[in-house]
């Protein structure tokens, strides 16, 4: 190895060691745990698939898993669809003070996550902001109860929480588009709609895919939002993982649930990535 390579490796080794110790080792440990079983106070270390059998066949875990996936996919679609026009507006219609706009978009994201979720509860609740405003305006006669404690509330809250993560990658992709390509499409007779679908959108696809993955993966793992605004119909798999590691005191089952949900998320992500790649391949 040349001296440059050695120097680079020496320099990278402290963060690498740290990541091996606090990331690789723990992840491997979780996988190992998922094959062990809990015997009241101690752990039986013989290999067993019992946890996975329970995680994949018991109706409650199946239902939670399916619901988590459904909610996460819905959150992702809603977040990305609503974020795209904003990113488009920033990239194509804002000419000065772009940085200020980006800064304003990220500020709400830096306030305490817990409090943001809690405030949605305040907005959507029985005596909440929306209900009291509509009552005062006379639009409704009694408070609406369908706003809070269901899956829709979870979707809305998460779509709010992850908005900047969707806007930024799409914005970056749109900024990279060579504006002369758009003029060329126009000169060759494409109308604005055709131009958007045949040039702009395909070129922005890497950003859209990145945004999709950035939103999808962490939302599966969120347990605060379902706990606070989801009610019983909005609970997700991460709530169950948390319960297994906490009150239920069955860490191996929790580990199996965590590994299973990660596996599902990883395969869905891979699918999205490949579809996105194919879509992009068609234009190039």
């Amino acid at each position: 190895m040349d001296s440059e390579g050695r120097r680079g490796l020496t320099l990278i080794s402290p963060p690498l060691m740290f990541a091996i110790a606090l990331l690789a080792a723990p992840l491997l440990m979780v996988v190992a745990f998922s094959f062990w079983t809990q015997n009241y106070l101690d752990i039986d270390r013989s290999f067993s698939l019992a946890n996975y059998h329970e995680a994949w066949t018991k109706p409650i875990y199946q239902a939670l898993m399916m619901r988590s996936l459904r909610i996460s996919v819905l959150v992702t679609v809603v977040t990305v669809l609503f974020a795209f026009p904003i990113a488009y507006y920033l990239s194509f219609h804002v000419h000065r003070r772009k940085a200020l706009w980006l800064f304003l978009i990220t500020i709400p994201f830096w306030t305490s996550y817990l409090l943001r979720v809690f405030l949605w509860k305040v907005i959507l609740g029985y005596n909440g902001v929306l209900n009291s405003a509509f009552l005062w305006l006379g639009v409704i006669d009694e408070p609406m109860t369908f706003l809070l404690y269901n899956a829709n509330a979870v979707v809305l809250t998460l779509a709010h929480a992850w908005a900047p993560f969707a806007i930024l990658p799409i914005f970056v992709a749109l900024e990279k588009i060579d504006r002369s390509l758009l003029e060329a499409a126009e000169d060759l007779g494409d109308g604005p709609v055709r131009r958007f679908f045949r040039v702009t959108l395909p070129l922005a696809m890497p950003g859209v895919i990145a945004a999709t993955l950035i939103v999808l993966i962490p939302t599966v793992g969120d347990f605060i939002t379902p706990r606070l605004v989801g009610g019983t119909d909005g609970l997700m798999i991460s709530n169950m993982i948390q319960i297994q590691f906490g009150k239920a005191n069955n860490a191996p089952l929790g580990a199996a649930l965590a590994v299973s949900s990660m596996g599902i998320v990883a395969s869905v992500s891979l699918m999205i990535y490949l579809i996105g790649k194919k879509f992009r391949g068609k234009v190039e």
Partner: peptide, 10 residues
């Protein structure tokens, strides 16, 4: 890109 709950549990 890892969900925080996975990092925490691990």
């Amino acid at each position: 890109v890892l969900p925080e709950i996975i990092v925490a549990v691990a």
